[in-house]
Write a protein that binds this DNA or RNA. Structure first.
Lengths: 147, 147
DNA sequence: CTAGTTGGTCAAGCTCCTTGACCATATAGT
DNA sequence: ACTATATGGTCAAGGAGCTTGACCAACTAG
């Protein structure tokens, strides 16, 4: 393996990720939602049944104070709400509102559209290969900065 | 293409990029340099023959004020220096110092090491396929947040 | 039932970026 | 040559998003 090939691979990976992040965010905004990339990962954690602020902090890799501020923000914008936790009076369960779900669906649409474009360039089967390769090299990568 | 497959691909791409960024930075720090991921892209632009602050700002996708502050930082840390520009008395040419070059080489070593690991998982030839796929889906992606 | 742990928030501060104002030099129009 | 505009760079102030530290309320283990 040539050194320059390793550099080219690293650059291509970062460029592809940066491009994806930007385009997903643009797609969500174009569908009428306001937000920043971090929302997407937060929503992914909240989606099934809600989560506590501490859960979210762990998921995002930030302090619980930062997660709490993010929740303030998405609550203020109407994407989620804080409810009493059914089993722990200290905790609060943060759950998506209907608008939060709509925003999540918008992000998924945007992603599907972009990946569709990749399939047009590489072909369906090669996109599957790409996904497989990526999953194998970074099974536990961090989830922070993007949709 | 299933929607969930598109989501899995997007998540894997972001995870891989985040993992790469973190590990390159760790590798550079482990080799005795202090820095943040943005340095790497700045150094890549400065490397051949130096660049002006404005060049750097365009390359990084930030304002020239931000680029100027970044240059302050890498100058203060001994990685670069400002010289008069040979053809324009308004401008200054920012060039890497020997320590700046050493830091760049350290980053390249770290990258080579990581990609080596990927070759161990996927095989040499598949790493080439991966690089090709990524280059084809994001030929002009942004270059900002990482080494 | 006290002692320690855990969920959450408030407050202050830091880092990195932005916008706005400004100066020095370069370039174009007349 | 001379004014007008564009460009390279910096200073200053402010904002977004994170951190650390302090703290309270409620859970859990001895």
């Amino acid at each position: 393996m040539q050194n320059s090939e390793a550099l080219a691979l690293a650059a291509a990976l970062l460029a592809a990720a940066g491009d994806l992040t930007r385009r997903v965010n643009d797609g969500v905004v174009a569908r009428g939602f306001e937000g920043r990339p971090a929302y997407g990962f937060a929503f992914a954690r909240l989606a099934p049944d809600g989560a506590t602020v501490t859960d979210l902090a762990v998921h995002l890799g930030v302090t619980k104070q930062a997660a709490s501020q993010l929740v303030d923000e998405i609550v203020r914008k109407g994407y989620a709400e804080r409810r009493p936790h059914p089993e722990d009076a200290r905790a609060r369960l943060v759950v998506l509102t209907e608008r939060g779900w709509a925003c999540t669906r918008a992000a998924e649409e945007a992603i599907a559209e972009i990946v569709q474009g990749w399939a047009g360039v590489l072909g369906e089967s090669e996109v599957g290969v790409l996904r497989d390769h990526l999953a194998r090299i970074a099974p536990y990568g961090p989830l922070r900065p993007s949709w």
